[in-house]
C-alpha cells in the first residue's frame, strides 16, 4: 500500500520533471534571445538532474548541477558575452517552412531511436531504486571502463585546446 502511494508520487514527480525538461527545451529552441535560451537550457539541465534524483542517483544528479549548471552553462554565458550576438544578427529573421520541417525531423529522429530502444529492450524497473555508492561508481570508471573514461577526458582536452586556438585565430584576424 505504502509502495503504491510512493509510486503515485514518483509518477507525479517524473511528469513534473519531464514537463520542466520539455518547457526548458522549448525555451531554449524558440527564444530569440541567446541568454534566455541559455536559461531554458539550464532549466532543462535541472530537470534532468531531478530525473537522476528520482532514479536514486543523487551523486550523478549533483554532478549534473555542479558541472553543467555551475560550469558549462557559465562558460556558455561567457562565450555569449564575448561574442556580439544580438537579436538583429544573422540568426534572426523569418524561418522558412523547410527549415521547420528539417528541425522537426532532427528532433524526432533521436526520440524515435531512443523510444524504440526503450520499448524493444526495456530496462528493469524498480519501485524504489537502489542507491549506488560513490565508491562503486568510481571503481566502475577506473577499472571496467577506464579506456572510454580516459578517451573522454582526452576529447575534452582536445576540444579545449581547439577552442583556444580558434579564439587566438579570430583575434589575430582583427
Amino acid at each position: 500500500m505504502e509502495n503504491l502511494e510512493y509510486e503515485r508520487l514518483a509518477w507525479a514527480l517524473l511528469y513534473g520533471h519531464i514537463a520542466i525538461i520539455v518547457i526548458g527545451g522549448f525555451i531554449t529552441v524558440l527564444s530569440q534571445n541567446l541568454v534566455r535560451a541559455l536559461v531554458g537550457l539550464i532549466m532543462t539541465l535541472f530537470g534532468v538532474a531531478g530525473l537522476f534524483f528520482l532514479m536514486a542517483a543523487p551523486f550523478i544528479a549533483l554532478m549534473q548541477i555542479l558541472i553543467y549548471v555551475g560550469a558549462v552553462s557559465v562558460l556558455i554565458f561567457f562565450a555569449i558575452m564575448l561574442t556580439s550576438a544580438w537579436p538583429g544578427g544573422d540568426e534572426s529573421g523569418t524561418i522558412s517552412v523547410r527549415k521547420i520541417i528539417f528541425a522537426g525531423l532532427a528532433a524526432i529522429a533521436p526520440a524515435i531511436f531512443l523510444g524504440m530502444a526503450a520499448i524493444l529492450k526495456p530496462p528493469p524497473s524498480f519501485l524504489i531504486p537502489d542507491e549506488i555508492e560513490v565508491g562503486i561508481l568510481g571503481r566502475f570508471f577506473l577499472e571496467d571502463f577506464i579506456l572510454p573514461f580516459e578517451l573522454i577526458s582526452l576529447l575534452l582536452t582536445v576540444a579545449m585546446a581547439g577552442a583556444v586556438v580558434l579564439a587566438f585565430e579570430m583575434r589575430r584576424k582583427k
Partner: peptide, 18 residues
Amino acid sequence: NTNVGLVLILAFTGINVL
C-alpha cells in the same frame, strides 16, 4: 543526512555565479 552532502553544497553554491 545524505552521503553526498558535500557535493550538494558545492553544486548549489556554484549556481550563484550564474
